[in-house]
């Protein structure tokens, strides 16, 4: 809607130029590399691509990546929504500072994130030693992977939900409670449905981001094939050991999964927008 209004304000010629620039850059920066990777992967035929993907270590790495990303998404949806809620609705002290802190994970090199987790939870740290005594392994194990993913993707859900929450401004909840709905009912039947598209959008973005995460994981995970080796680390190993075919195969799978996730998200959002428009 916003874009319609904006382009209606421009003369047709400048609108055309804008569109051309937009298409050119999307083509150059996104479509071209993606097409290049896909072509490269299929160059030696579908059979050999499938052979690379179906290598036991590749499949195990992919499966581990998907599971870790799913766990991260579930946690992120809850904590991210709660964080947004607190930032919008509660008068917490230093709200401005906390709000700024949310984006910090975007600014920190992911390698440093990995190092930080190892220092925090490694056997030499107080926390790591305490957990170790109770038989809990965090770094060089799967919990470390989830922690790294959580840190790296934390801003997505918060930043997706926050603006929608600010627009709600509480009048719908007031209306619901005036009509006699309890707090739980208000939350589940009024608040949650309004937030859902935004939550899903944040979830899909963080999921896609997690599939490719490398820098923090290669430090935090043990990288043992079939146990703690994720897809991106497997891909890196294949490149480094002179088997780009194996790297391309799994990359294309990650690409397709990401694309499908974002596509489904877009469809859901369009449906909910149409739904909102008919009310």
């Amino acid at each position: 809607m916003l874009s319609n209004r904006a382009s209606a304000g421009l003369r047709p010629a400048s609108a055309m130029v804008m569109r051309a620039i937009f298409l050119f850059f999307v083509g150059l920066l996104v479509v071209l590399p993606v097409v290049a990777i896909s072509l490269e992967a299929f160059r030696s035929g579908f059979g050999s691509l499938w052979k690379q993907i179906s290598h036991p270590q590749a499949l195990a790495a992919l499966w581990l990546t998907l599971r870790m990303a799913m766990i991260m998404v579930v946690i992120n949806v809850v904590t991210g929504t709660a964080t947004a809620w607190v930032l919008v609705r509660n008068r917490v002290p230093l709200r401005g500072l906390i709000n700024a802190l949310v984006d910090i994970p975007f600014a920190i090199p992911t390698v440093v994130t990995g190092m930080m987790l190892v220092v925090l939870y490694g056997p030499h740290s107080v926390l790591g030693a305490l957990l170790g005594r109770h038989g809990v392994e965090v770094v060089f194990s799967r919990p470390g992977i989830v922690l790294a993913l959580l840190f790296v993707t934390f801003p997505f859900v918060v930043r997706a939900v926050q603006p929608v929450m600010m627009e709600m401004e509480g009048d719908m909840e007031e209306a619901a409670s005036t009509l006699g709905a309890g707090r739980m009912r208000t939350f589940f039947q009024v608040v949650l449905p309004t937030l859902l598209p935004a939550i899903l959008s944040g979830a899909a973005l963080s999921f896609s981001r997690a599939l490719g995460e490398f820098g923090s994981i290669i430090i935090v995970a043990g990288n043992i094939p079939m146990r703690t080796q994720v897809a991106s680390v497997y891909i890196y190993g294949e490149i480094e050991s002179g088997n780009p075919g194996g790297a391309m195969g799994l990359s294309v799978v990650l690409l397709v999964i990401s694309l499908l996730t974002l596509l489904v998200l877009n469809l859901l959002q369009q449906r909910s927008q149409r739904h909102a428009a008919t009310i």
Binding site: G122, P123, H124, F140, Y236
Partner: peptide, 20 residues
């Protein structure tokens, strides 16, 4: 018996120095 496989020898020494 190997729990961590780093990407380079140097990185492995660093891991060893963290107490693993």
């Amino acid at each position: 018996r190997v729990r961590v496989m780093n990407k380079s020898g140097r990185a492995s020494v660093t891991t060893f120095e963290t107490g693993v």
